[in-house]
């Protein structure tokens, strides 16, 4: 059982929906980023998605692209991202951290070495955007063997024929992408997403969390109401990019978390 599994069991027992927040590691710099990440659980965040900066984030919109560029410019690397997670873990041993990014920095380090280092740093799960089920042997299977959850994205284009394959080696939770598109674009529509979430839940016992296109407390509530939780990324990251203080960022996060938790 990973911290993710324990978190969902706890939420389930309390009858609460999960609120997941995404921030880019090292944005705008290492120290500020650590400060923000450390504040997230207190602002109501149940699971932290920690972005791993990459020069070519092909599934991300301008907001996350710029965050990655800020982080890289400030000297963020895969190692410093693991360091940041480990630093967070020193004071918080319960809030799950999911590392989200692209495969090349991981492949470059070497999968086995990366998995050992990630586990040591207190990472609980991985979301790697450019590793579909067809490439499961690369990282997904070794990650599960190493005791890390491998969280898969399901999308509006994942039809019923394909869904079992997507769910097969997924663990922790399923991340449903509410729109066909990139992060920070479009609007999640709870009415349209609900039947999709139901379709996935009919085929798995894993929690289904919905992300993309959620940027207000109201939307956070509306989406959480029809799923097991909601993820917000770009809306938070854009405030960090606009120079908001840590307190202001966390205040905004608190509103989103309250939205999800009131569902």
């Amino acid at each position: 059982m990973t911290r993710i599994d324990r978190k969902f069991a706890e939420l389930d027992a309390a009858g609460r929906k999960a609120f997941v927040a995404y921030v880019m590691a090292g944005d705008p710099d290492y120290d500020r980023s650590l400060q923000i990440v450390r504040g997230l659980p207190g602002a109501g965040v149940d699971i932290i998605e920690l972005g791993l900066p990459f020069t070519d984030p092909m599934a991300d919109g301008p907001t996350i692209q710029l965050a990655g560029q800020r982080a890289l410019k400030a000297g963020q690397t895969l190692q410093r991202t693991l360091d940041l997670a480990a630093e967070f873990r020193k004071r918080d041993d319960t809030t799950p951290i999911v590392l989200m990014g692209y495969y090349n920095p991981i492949y470059n380090r070497g999968v086995d070495r990366f998995l050992a280092d990630a586990r040591d740093a207190g990472i609980d799960g991985l979301i790697v955007v450019d590793l579909p089920p067809e490439e499961d042997d690369e990282l997904c299977i070794p990650a599960q063997a190493a005791g890390l959850n491998f969280i898969r994205l399901a999308t509006p284009t994942t039809d019923d024929r394909r869904l079992p394959r997507v769910l097969q080696n997924t663990s922790g939770f399923v991340y449903y992408v509410s729109i066909t598109g990139i992060t920070g674009a479009g609007e999640a529509n709870a009415a349209a997403v609900a039947p999709e979430v139901a379709r996935i839940k009919a085929r798995t016992d894993l929690p289904v969390i919905v992300g993309f296109g959620i940027n207000t407390p109201d939307k956070s509530r509306a989406i959480a109401a029809i799923a097991d939780g909601a993820v917000v990324g770009s809306a938070i990251v854009s405030r960090i990019g606009a120079g908001a203080s840590t307190a202001e960022v966390l205040e905004f996060v608190r509103g989103l978390a309250e939205g999800a938790h009131s569902a």
């Binding site: 599934a59 955007v129 579909p132 490439e135 898969r152 999308t155 509006p156 994942t158 394909r162």
Partner: peptide
């Protein structure tokens, strides 16, 4: 059938694109 030339090639894309 995996789209590989030795270890090179493959299908490293997001799930949204995979069915297409």
């Amino acid at each position: 059938e995996m789209g590989r030339f030795g270890i090179f090639g493959g299908r490293f894309v997001s799930e949204t694109l995979m069915p297409l």
